[in-house]
């Protein structure tokens, strides 16, 4: 750890920016409480939709935009395993034919982290200052789990939230069916996958389901609510930061 507080570039992610700003503010709160200085560089999207649609040229140009904006900072932190995984695992090979950009991509990759991983693995945070009485279950988002090895980090931190009881669901490591453009290209398949996921969530009897990626959360919330389930859906950062006064995903003050 440097003597002066580390300067973090928050990669907000496009879904958090548009759908769930609370997650961004929760990330800032957690990082600041851990002694970081947080900045929000100019940003749009990490480029994953283009990358996974086979449009490497667009993916590269968006990656260059992110690299240029974030490379002056000490770290890049995203409240998403998917976007952090994109920067960390997929940016360098995008520039396999361009040594200059490849080196810059690799330097950025080395200092990019998913939020709960950054808090625990890099900053060594062992405890958060929050309370959330109730039972929660945790869905392991695919990219976070399999590209970045995020499994214990959010659970360790959740374990220090006052009043939380974690009840693991069956198949917490199986995809929820979101898959970015997959849920639009193959809606019926996606629906089947998220139906199975909703079943596993409800079987735990937990009152809240948490995850670290907004794509999965929007998908699970949309399905649970369509089926009339009352289980609340939140990003794990909201609970860790104690920002659970706001209505859960897909709910509003008026819903009652």
């Amino acid at each position: 750890m440097p003597i002066s507080p580390p300067r973090i570039g928050l990669f907000v992610t496009c879904l958090v920016d548009l759908f769930r700003p609370t997650v961004g503010f929760a990330a800032i709160k957690l990082l600041e409480e851990a002694g970081c200085v947080v900045e929000v560089p100019t940003q749009t999207c990490c480029g994953q939709p283009a990358y996974n649609s086979g449009d490497r040229a667009t993916a590269r140009s968006l990656a260059q935009q992110v690299i240029a904006a974030f490379e002056p900072l000490d770290y890049v932190v995203a409240p998403s395993g998917s976007c952090a995984g994109m920067i960390k695992q997929h940016y360098p090979p995008l520039f396999s034919n361009d040594p200059g950009w490849r080196a810059r991509a690799e330097r950025l990759s080395a200092k990019t982290f998913e939020l709960t991983s950054f808090l625990t693995d890099v900053l060594g945070v062992e405890q958060v200052n929050a309370s959330h009485p109730g039972t929660v279950t945790y869905h392991d988002s695919c990219s976070g789990l399999r590209e970045l090895g995020i499994k214990t980090q959010p659970r360790r931190l959740l374990g220090t939230v006052e009043g939380v009881e974690l009840r693991e669901m069956e198949e917490s490591e199986v995809c929820c069916g979101f898959g970015g453009t997959f849920c639009i290209k193959y809606p019926e398949l996606s629906n089947r996958m998220v139906s199975d996921k909703a079943g596993h969530i409800l079987a735990t009897g937990a009152d809240t389901v948490l995850a670290g990626d907004l794509g999965c959360l929007l998908n699970m919330a949309g399905k649970l609510q369509r089926d009339g389930a009352t289980v609340q859906v939140r990003h794990v950062a909201e609970v860790l930061a104690g920002l659970t006064e706001v209505p859960a995903i897909g709910e509003s003050e008026g819903d009652g």
Binding site: F19, L218, N219, A221, G222
Partner: peptide, 29 residues
């Protein structure tokens, strides 16, 4: 004023099976 949309013609693939949660408020930015 609700937290979600039940039907959105441009996102039928989504809303045929799921509600679409809407943004909490103004964007993060």
């Amino acid at each position: 004023g609700k937290g979600r949309i039940r039907s959105l013609p441009l996102a039928r693939g989504w809303t045929a099976w799921r509600d679409l949660p809407v943004p909490q408020g103004r964007t993060f930015q």
